[in-house]
Write a protein that binds this DNA or RNA. Structure first.
Lengths: 155, 155
DNA sequence: GCAATAGCATACTATTCTGCTAGGCAAAGT
DNA sequence: ACTTTGCCTAGCAGAATAGTATGCTATTGC
């Protein structure tokens, strides 16, 4: 249960692009600018932005005046979309999809737990869009999770 | 968002022990038996069971009639407890606790998303006990996630 | 046309993590 | 004694993670 640097960087880059998009959807932002604004290693970020472009979420142009821009509506793209592009499926049990694992005997019902885990992840990550995060207005269901007293305490 | 072999094996071993516990709480189960019943590499399992013993969830005895048994009430121990013993905290952002990550500018509210993700994982994993999984009666909230039509479809 | 700029593409690398295996030691029963 | 079963340390191959290096290509301004 671990969010990789790659996904974290990718989402932050998309947020930076979404921020520019709100001002002018056609404005291009240089990779170097995103990297320094979000403290991300520039060359590493380049590869991440390439993946996002190949997935159709980002567009780019080369040369002087070149850069990246969002190629999607920030209120339509979810955090889950970005993670899937960069790191693959949201949840897996040592490489196998939750619904595909096969258990015997006493562990028969363990698969249901993994499917429920994935469903709960989807609940948060597929509901929350780039725009939600940018303006800080998370979906009601997500917000409800945060407002619980123990959400911020470590176990 | 990945469940390791280690946690998966550990939980299945605990389920096997819970199953014996229901018959007789003092009965000892040999490591070799658990390994073959759950198709887990025996020597790998040994290390996992040692971690669980050091955490106080399992007890053991050596020698001819030796083996392992649960040292806790299966209706008190949750899946989250086992994962924390074997793989550490439920959720982290490239090694940092969700509530500890620091974001600038456009990503300011991303932290809230990660805290919500952790909260939703806790919702499933801290609510579901070994006994729940053993008898296949998952908590109502968890069951509700499974009953949704798209819970079993892949994205 | 030419240089400067900024993204594109491939390859390489260092470190850590994962998923195991080997081998000997220590205790418990017969 | 001897067998059984767990205890413990070490090692190890392969994959994943988190980058870096280097050269190429498209675009613009002069």
């Amino acid at each position: 249960m671990h969010i990789s640097s790659k996904s974290d960087y990718g989402i932050r880059a998309m947020l930076e692009l979404a921020s520019a998009y709100e001002v002018d959807p056609d404005e291009l932002v240089r990779g170097e600018y995103i990297a320094s604004a979000q403290s991300i290693p520039a060359k590493f970020l380049e590869g991440i932005l390439r993946q996002l472009r190949l997935a159709g979420l980002v567009a780019s142009r080369r040369g002087v005046e070149g850069g990246y821009r969002l190629d999607c509506d920030p209120s339509k793209v979810t955090i889950a979309d970005i993670i899937r592009v960069l790191d693959g499926p949201l949840a897996d049990v040592h490489g196998i999809r939750p619904e595909d694992v096969v258990y015997e005997g006493a562990s028969e019902h363990l698969r249901d737990v993994w499917v429920a885990v994935r469903a709960s992840l989807r609940d948060v990550l597929e509901r929350t869009t780039l725009r939600d995060v940018l303006i800080g207005k998370l979906p009601r269901e997500t917000r409800r999770l945060l407002d619980r007293p123990d959400a911020w305490t470590r176990r």
